[in-house]
Amino acid sequence: MVSSPTPVADHQHRLSHPYRITSGDGFQLHQIDPGSTDHTQISDKHAAEAALANGVERMAELQDKLYAQDRWALLLVFQAMDAAGKDGTIKHVMSGVNPQGCQVSSFKAPSALDLDHDYLWRANQCLPERGRIGIFNRSYYEETLVVRVHPELLARQTIPEVLVDHDIWQHRFRDIRHYEDYLSRNGVVVRKFFLHVSKQEQKRRFLERLENPEKNWKFSAADIRERAHWDAYMEAYEQMIRHTASEHSPWYVVPADHKWFTRLVVADAVIDALESLHLAYPTVNDQARRALAEAHQQLLNE
Rank of each mutant, 00 (worst) to 15 (best):
K86A: 06
R177W: 14
Y237K: 07
L183N: 11
A228L: 07
A288F: 11
V104Q: 09
D272M: 13
R209D: 15
E214S: 15
K259I: 09
K65G: 07
W230A: 10
I21N: 10
R204F: 04
D286G: 15
Q31I: 09
S220G: 02
R174V: 13
L163F: 11
C126R: 02
E49F: 03
Q100N: 10
A73D: 05
V77A: 06
K199L: 08
Y67E: 09
Q170P: 12
T283L: 00
G96D: 03
S4E: 04
F194Y: 13
Y233F: 10
Y19A: 09
A109C: 00
K215F: 00
V164D: 14
V254K: 09
H39R: 08
M81H: 10
F173K: 01
V189L: 04
A228G: 01
L154Q: 07
H178D: 13
R58P: 13
E238L: 00
K91M: 05
R177G: 12
L76R: 15
A109I: 03
S4W: 13
A267T: 03
K259Y: 06
L113E: 08
E161T: 12
A222P: 13
P18I: 06
A236E: 10
L207D: 14
V56P: 03
N124P: 12
K259Q: 03
R172W: 10
S246Y: 03
L75C: 15
E49V: 13
I224P: 03
Q298H: 15
M59A: 01
S3E: 01
Q79T: 05
Q170T: 11
E211K: 13
H278D: 09
D82C: 00
H13V: 12
N137H: 12
A269S: 04
E294T: 08
F107Y: 12
L127S: 02
T262V: 02
A280E: 11
H30E: 10
G26C: 14
V8C: 15
D118H: 00
V8G: 15
G26K: 02
K86E: 08
V254M: 07
